[in-house]
Write a protein that binds this DNA or RNA. Sequence first.
DNA 1: CAATAATACTAAATCGATTTAGATTTTTGC
DNA 2: GCAAAAATCTAAATCGATTTAGTATTATTG
Lengths: 342, 342
Amino acid sequence: MANRVTLDDIARKVGVSKTLVSLVLNGKAEQFGISRKTCERVFQVVKELNYRPNQTARSLRTGKTGTIGLVVSDISNAFYAQMARIFEDLAAAQGHSVIICSTDEDAEKEQRLITVLRNRQVDGLVVSTSQREVSWLLSINKYDTPIVLIDRHLGDNVLAAVVAANRTGGALLARHLKEQGYRHPLVLGLSTSLISSVAERIDGFVDEFKKHGVTCVIHAVGFNSLQSDVDALFANLKALPVKPDCIFAVNNNVATAALQSISARGIRVPIQLGLVCFDDLPYFSIINPGITAVEQPISQMCRKAFELLHQQISGNIDRSNVSIYEIPVKLNIRESSLKKFS
Amino acid sequence: MANRVTLDDIARKVGVSKTLVSLVLNGKAEQFGISRKTCERVFQVVKELNYRPNQTARSLRTGKTGTIGLVVSDISNAFYAQMARIFEDLAAAQGHSVIICSTDEDAEKEQRLITVLRNRQVDGLVVSTSQREVSWLLSINKYDTPIVLIDRHLGDNVLAAVVAANRTGGALLARHLKEQGYRHPLVLGLSTSLISSVAERIDGFVDEFKKHGVTCVIHAVGFNSLQSDVDALFANLKALPVKPDCIFAVNNNVATAALQSISARGIRVPIQLGLVCFDDLPYFSIINPGITAVEQPISQMCRKAFELLHQQISGNIDRSNVSIYEIPVKLNIRESSLKKFS
DNA sequence: CAATAATACTAAATCGATTTAGATTTTTGC
DNA sequence: GCAAAAATCTAAATCGATTTAGTATTATTG
């Protein structure tokens, strides 16, 4: 075996105790008054034998694994994939690793996955939760593993959370549509709309239209039957009491499904139908018409979440006094909602 | 702490040894002739105290962490994000977890990341490698950690690898373009074209055209300067000795960058310029024109790679006799290459 | 020069599981 | 009723690191 080299092997070869080797390798040589010469011999042998510390053993002793768990609904979704990459980089900068889990918006599956992560002794969790009540996560956070919520929160002052300005973003989209002359908005939501992010996007959107006396129709589609639900809706668009003149897709998946239907049916955007989306994707600016979207500040959200998690892990923060951090969003106006000018 | 419950706690409360508790929990009760009654009491107390085994301790003793490392160039790329999701599911089905690392096509970074993963005692590695020679990975695989390459291989009979039928896919695209009447193909490759997948795609493409006396122009762009390199190319298209009438993007990133340029310059596809891509994306079938693409069998590739890895991990296979598995691809013809009919 | 301090190092305990080797107790056969 | 066999269970070693509580040895000081 290339690496059955242990601390003992180093110690034996150098002719010192493994305590000393450990101290040297952990940079505590100075503190423990270990002579420069000895240090050098240790480093030399470490290099010679190509010693690599067994992280498992270290974790058992220290109680720290240098691993964080990232729990999202689906890592293959572009939004969470980007998030994963950013967390990976943030973690790697500290020599930490990330284990990623996809819940498919299933609260029970989420609990199973989090249990696995806890058994693996992750130092902390970043969770885009599908839970509907806070108690379970709260007790974990309180007694065991630090948790920071991302993208979705579970109400005030219970668990630290970093979210996009969902309500504001929804309102921005609504105001824009209204200014463009759209009057019959249809909100394409998810049947899991209890999750805070989607709910607030919809609230912000609906409230803004309501201010001007316009009522929104809300239609929910299933996370696991997205395309077929959306297709079914489009097949019956004309049968609706009021035929919508624009659509608000609450996330990038919904928007893509809608675009699929729109494309298949040859519906003309933005004339026949306006389209806006919460969450921006690279291809939205490539296609014709470009899709008006609210861009989420993923990088900022991740950095803040990571910072909060680290404060909790290192115990530099009072875990009972937590806040929801809301990061501003940006409206990218493109042709899909420009009724006036088309 | 919610979970400072250890095997000892269970043993003490039940009034047996921790050996027994461990045996019971690992399903070895029968084998060791432990009475039904005792088992039941153990299970009851385990549930009562909400015992969760410490995976770190278990890993140290058994030498198995139940973790595999997935090393790719960038997890936020749709292709690898999908891959990650599939591996996650495959691993989860066996109670295993996945740690994901992004190398940015940097061979040294890849080595650093793999070293971290090995220190974490991962049971195996699935790597879409950026290495240019096989020796380093080979020695790891031989003496230490099982490795299966995915998407890219490093030559015959050195490391198990699962790849798409890259050469065939390239040829399929070339034949199609030729049949459509395109005669001046430009290959948009990557400066990291030494990697087998890209190289073979290009080879297959170029060879097919050569059969019919057509020479391809090959233009490489940088992984870290994709958009600007592509933009620069498009700015000078006319200045090229032969103006291309179609473009072959060697992967989805390159295609998206090309589309960005195409869209910005108002180039008309497929009339002015045909476009095909190796690697299919959901949005390729939504936009107008749809993008002709070779679809990679990601799921099959992942399943095969996972199977191979598991054979290696469980020692059911001779590690020195390895093969490259090539999985068939599928050509999805869309409007972006239909010169004839447009 | 003895007492004290500083320097350089180490033995052994520990983290929480698994596993080996063996110890009891009970049952069975004759 | 007693040895052998079967049925249950356990003590202790182990994985490979970190950390606590020291121990020698040498240098300094009054």
